[in-house]
Design a protein around this nucleic acid. Structure first.
Length: 270
DNA sequence: AAAACTACCTGAGTGC
DNA sequence: TGCACTCAGGTAGTTT
């Protein structure tokens, strides 16, 4: 369940080991990810990784001739291993680097993807219609007010819509709505401007703080093992059904929206 | 056009 | 101990 902070943490952890290095070989052992891994990925041997950036939860490996577009889905992870290291169950792809190490793509549920895009990745179908990055200046109250106007969709689903803003997954949506005192079922168009402002701040804060925590607990990605879980301990409502609200002591509730659990305080969130 | 629903997948957890 | 079952969740694509 990598949310945006984990993807960013992964990017920062992996970048020093791949940017500026050449790929010497690519091994694809399991092609059946969200979409089949194209043969163009196998042919990346000899390419140099010029940059590793992120757009939404997509990792973008700029290799000069194009861009590897990677998504970790629900259960994906990247790990650097010594050359020739044992393949683990669910290791699907290995990028051999000229450092002698290998970058392994691991994804038990195979919801992730590894694609190759020639030309501008910003024009790729997966990228082109995405909303602003939550930590950018483009994501602000004026923008959100404009997008929410007249919308009857629940605010929770609205903020999880990647065409509105990227990187707000199920957990952070619950957290941000709690922090801004908005009921998850409230129609997006019926949230007052001031509270949309609070929501912008809350999303920024919760994502920003998690990225910082990821930074401080950053594994070295050479001996990565297990889940970081660096936000688990600081969740305010998510997963706390039937427990006392940390603000008012009322009982935290869980409802299901679009087949996703939403946690909220019926007293603090209206 | 917008909203609702479906498919994809495996590991963890639960109940019998 | 083991089987059968449910749940979790990102997101593109399809249906209503």
């Amino acid at each position: 369940m990598p949310e945006l902070p984990e993807v960013e943490t992964t990017r920062r952890g992996v970048a020093p080991h791949v940017v500026g290095r050449s790929i010497t070989a690519v091994e694809v052992r399991e092609r059946r990810l969200r979409w089949p891994v194209p043969r163009s990925v196998d042919r990346l041997a000899g390419e140099r990784v010029v940059d590793l950036s992120r757009r939404a939860k997509y990792l973008l490996f700029d290799v000069g001739s194009g861009t590897v577009i990677m998504h970790l889905g629900m259960s994906g992870s990247l790990r650097l291993v010594e050359g020739g290291a044992q393949w683990r169950k669910h290791d699907h792809i290995s990028f051999h680097m000229d450092s002698g190490r290998e970058l392994r793509f691991h994804d038990p549920r195979r919801f992730g993807c590894v694609l190759f895009c020639k030309g501008d990745p910003g024009k790729h179908r997966l990228i082109r219609d995405l909303g602003p990055e939550p930590l950018s200046q483009d994501f602000n109250v004026d923008y959100l007010v404009e997008r929410a106007a007249g919308k009857t969709v629940a605010i929770k689903q609205f903020v999880m819509n990647a065409q509105v803003v990227v990187g707000v997954g199920n957990i952070y949506a619950s957290e941000a709505l709690f922090m801004s005192g908005i009921h998850p079922k409230r129609a997006a168009g019926r949230v007052a401007r001031a509270r949309l402002g609070k929501l912008v701040t809350a999303i920024r804060e919760v994502l920003g703080r998690s990225i910082e925590m990821g930074g401080t607990t950053l594994r070295d990605f050479l001996h990565e093992d297990g889940k970081p879980g660096y936000f688990r301990q600081s969740l305010r409502v998510y997963g706390r059904e039937d427990e006392a609200c940390i603000n008012c002591n009322a009982t935290v509730r869980r409802i299901v929206q679009n087949a996703r659990s939403s946690f909220y305080c019926p007293n603090c969130q209206r």
